[in-house]
Design a protein around this nucleic acid. Sequence first.
DNA 1: GCTTGACCCTATAGTTGCTAGAGGGTGCAT
DNA 2: ATGCACCCTCTAGCAACTATAGGGTCAAGC
Lengths: 135, 135
Amino acid sequence: MKIGELARATDTKVETIRYYEGAGLLAPPARTDGNYRSYGTDELLRLSFIRRARDLGFSLDEVRELLALADDRDQPCGAVDAVASSHLATIERKIADLSQMRDELARVIGGCRLGKVGDCKIIQTLEPLRGASRR
Amino acid sequence: MKIGELARATDTKVETIRYYEGAGLLAPPARTDGNYRSYGTDELLRLSFIRRARDLGFSLDEVRELLALADDRDQPCGAVDAVASSHLATIERKIADLSQMRDELARVIGGCRLGKVGDCKIIQTLEPLRGASRR
DNA sequence: GCTTGACCCTATAGTTGCTAGAGGGTGCAT
DNA sequence: ATGCACCCTCTAGCAACTATAGGGTCAAGC
Ligand SMILES: [Zn+2]
Ligand SMILES: [Zn+2]
Ligand SMILES: [Zn+2]
Ligand SMILES: [Zn+2]
């Protein structure tokens, strides 16, 4: 199949597929006489793998690692688990950071009485030495 | 004060301060005879504002907007509230997305029995079609 | 008065993961 | 032969920095 078909089949943009090839996630495929990339089922499977991993938030480096690990089917899967678990920890850290941001931001916004800018709690919070609330 | 002092006072890297200047968040400051940037209290306050806004996750575009709004102290603060509220909504969307990722990833990892890669639930989840019909 | 070292300067490229464009070639139908 | 959808390579752009390279400045110590 041509790159456009592969793109439709995997819900990926054509440019992204070419980008993955340049990034070493997909091997350079066979070419037609007209120099078009020509893909088969293997590439479809590999790209599906990549897309699913990306949907789970894995970085391209992690995806590369997972792809390499997936090829050694008889090895123990501890390394796979390690990549996934450390990624999960990263996501949880991000959620924690964002939740703290959300709480603080919501608190600040809650203080706004929709008056003048000079009296706005949001602005005062951002202006440390001129306004009220310090932390 | 020189840029290094300002950097220490605001917990910002020197390069970041210069970057903010190039990005139009800080005006080009006065220079010494030796062509060193020379900052005063105004710049310290402005950079503190920027850092606090960044800590709350505002984009540089949003910070620019907030800085502009903060200057018109007699205007109503509705626009400030709008920027902050829409940013809060963005953060909440991010948290929701990441939480879904976390749940799915945790579920997948929970299925791993630490056997061989070929039997690993993590790998199988990423390889949608291979579980049934391989090659 | 000369060197050392901490600090400063500009300009440019790298990071992540794509996305968009320019400027062209291919393949098929009308 | 002409239009059109699709493909090609190469380059630049996005956010928000960060990190070099290759210099200049300034005060202290010998
Ligand atoms: Zn990760
Ligand atoms: Zn307000
Ligand atoms: Zn925002
Ligand atoms: Zn496993």
